[in-house]
Computed example of a mutant assay.
Amino acid sequence: MRTEIVEIFSDQTNAAIMRHPGRAFPGVLVQGDSLHALCHRADLACEQLSRKSPGYEELNELRNALWSYLNHYKATLQAHGIALPFSENRSF
């Protein structure tokens, strides 16, 4: 872990906008519990569509991208000894 100064453009809850040093554009900070909920909502949306439905492939790619971010988040917190802000057993 390292500490650096970031530019914070908005502190809005669950939608903080900040620019990481060395980046040209700001990004949105999504809290881990919110990301976890988005992953499960994407799972539910995919479950409700047939694999042959128009748009399913794009939705599944979105779901996989969200889960990739969440898996990286979980691994990073684990590596630093930080508890997850959500229950892995929670059903949506």
Results as ranks from 00 to 15, higher is better:
1 M>L: 10
1 M>V: 12
1 M>A: 12
3 T>P: 00
4 E>D: 14
4 E>R: 07
4 E>C: 03
4 E>Q: 08
4 E>L: 02
6 V>K: 00
8 I>F: 02
8 I>W: 03
10 S>Y: 07
10 S>R: 05
11 D>Q: 09
12 Q>T: 12
13 T>A: 08
14 N>P: 01
14 N>C: 06
15 A>P: 00
15 A>C: 12
16 A>Y: 05
18 M>Y: 11
18 M>R: 06
18 M>Q: 04
20 H>V: 14
20 H>D: 07
21 P>H: 06
22 G>E: 02
22 G>Y: 04
23 R>M: 13
23 R>G: 01
24 A>I: 07
24 A>M: 09
26 P>I: 14
26 P>K: 10
27 G>Y: 09
27 G>A: 13
28 V>T: 15
30 V>Q: 04
30 V>T: 13
32 G>Y: 01
32 G>S: 12
34 S>G: 02
34 S>Y: 05
34 S>E: 13
36 H>V: 01
36 H>S: 08
36 H>F: 15
37 A>K: 08
38 L>R: 15
39 C>E: 03
41 R>W: 10
41 R>Y: 11
42 A>I: 05
42 A>D: 11
42 A>N: 07
43 D>L: 07
43 D>C: 10
44 L>A: 15
45 A>V: 02
45 A>K: 14
46 C>S: 14
46 C>M: 08
47 E>L: 12
48 Q>N: 14
48 Q>D: 09
48 Q>R: 15
48 Q>H: 15
48 Q>K: 15
49 L>T: 02
50 S>R: 11
50 S>C: 07
51 R>N: 06
52 K>L: 14
54 P>S: 11
54 P>K: 07
56 Y>L: 01
56 Y>W: 15
57 E>H: 12
58 E>W: 05
59 L>C: 02
59 L>H: 02
60 N>M: 13
60 N>W: 05
60 N>V: 08
61 E>P: 00
61 E>K: 15
62 L>G: 08
62 L>D: 07
63 R>M: 11
64 N>D: 15
64 N>V: 05
64 N>Q: 15
66 L>Y: 12
66 L>K: 04
66 L>N: 06
69 Y>D: 10
70 L>A: 03
71 N>Q: 12
72 H>M: 09
74 K>L: 07
76 T>K: 08
76 T>V: 05
80 H>V: 06
80 H>N: 09
81 G>R: 03
82 I>M: 05
84 L>K: 01
85 P>L: 03
86 F>E: 06
86 F>H: 01
86 F>T: 05
87 S>V: 03
89 N>F: 04
89 N>S: 13
89 N>C: 01
90 R>D: 07
90 R>H: 06
92 F>I: 13
92 F>T: 10
92 F>P: 02
